[in-house]
């Protein structure tokens, strides 16, 4: 169900309902809010009891129903669309969506299909991430920042790239020669740039075209370099 961003302000975003059973109370509340169960958080205040012999001391079921906030709705939408897509790909999976600052972190765990979903150099995962962003963005009518990971692949990749960058930077420093890394996608080049940003003795820059783009780690300006590129000296 689509979330109407310009919710009628006269409509409450929280109700407390009482009925004979929890189910009935929830139903009443949803009807009053005019939404479906997926758009709300439900808290049971009192499960209700029949009391002695169903006559005395019985209490009604009581629930509090709150509309999910925008962030909760966005996360639910992401989870739903990711789940649908994976199901249609015939990949059994569990999807978890967390929010960190303004970014939604989508964690996917599959039953033995991690490699397939990640693809060579993460290209399937890149495609999946791009499509999900577009699809969710279209449905919610706004851009949503998302990061998608499968079986912790991204996380491991970040760590290994970072340590590799630092190792190579050490070599560049001792040899005075620049080093070119293997071809890396944009997000991974960024990890290398950031990992070495704080190191004043080396600089990094991107070379290559398309799928062959990668990062060169070179001695910083002013440091001895045997094979300095004309571009860099010319300024």
């Amino acid at each position: 169900m689509m979330y109407d961003q310009e919710t009628d302000s006269s409509r409450p975003n929280e109700v407390v309902e009482q009925a004979k059973t929890v189910e009935e109370a929830v139903e009443k509340g949803l009807a009053r809010l005019g939404v479906s169960a997926e758009d709300v958080e439900i808290e049971v205040i009192d499960e209700g009891s029949k009391g002695v012999l169903g006559l005395i001391g019985g209490s009604q079921a009581k629930v509090q129903i709150r509309l999910k906030d925008e962030s909760g709705l966005t996360a639910a939408k992401i989870e739903e669309m990711t789940g649908n897509l994976l199901k249609l790909m015939d990949i059994g999976s569990q999807v978890r969506v967390d929010r960190e600052d303004d970014t939604y972190l989508v964690g996917i765990e599959t039953a033995g299909a991690d490699g397939l979903l990640i693809g060579k150099r993460g290209q399937n995962l890149d495609a999946l991430t791009y499509l999900l962003k577009r699809m969710v963005g279209k449905q919610l009518k706004r851009n949503v920042r998302m990061e998608v990971d499968v079986g912790g692949y991204r996380q491991r990749r970040v760590e290994s790239l970072r340590s590799k960058a630092i190792l190579l930077a050490g070599r560049v420093k001792s040899s005075g020669k620049e080093v070119e890394m293997e071809p890396l996608p944009a997000a991974e080049r960024r990890i290398v740039h950031i990992a070495l940003q704080a190191d004043p003795s080396v600089k990094t820059y991107t070379v290559g075209e398309g799928d062959l783009k990668t990062v060169v780690i070179a001695p910083a300006d002013g440091q001895a370099t045997e094979k300095a590129e004309g571009d860099d000296l010319a300024r």
Partner: peptide, 13 residues
């Protein structure tokens, strides 16, 4: 391109 990539992955499976 992304749709094709995902389609290929699903087809491979």
């Amino acid at each position: 391109r992304s749709i094709r990539t995902i389609l290929n992955a699903a087809a491979t499976k």
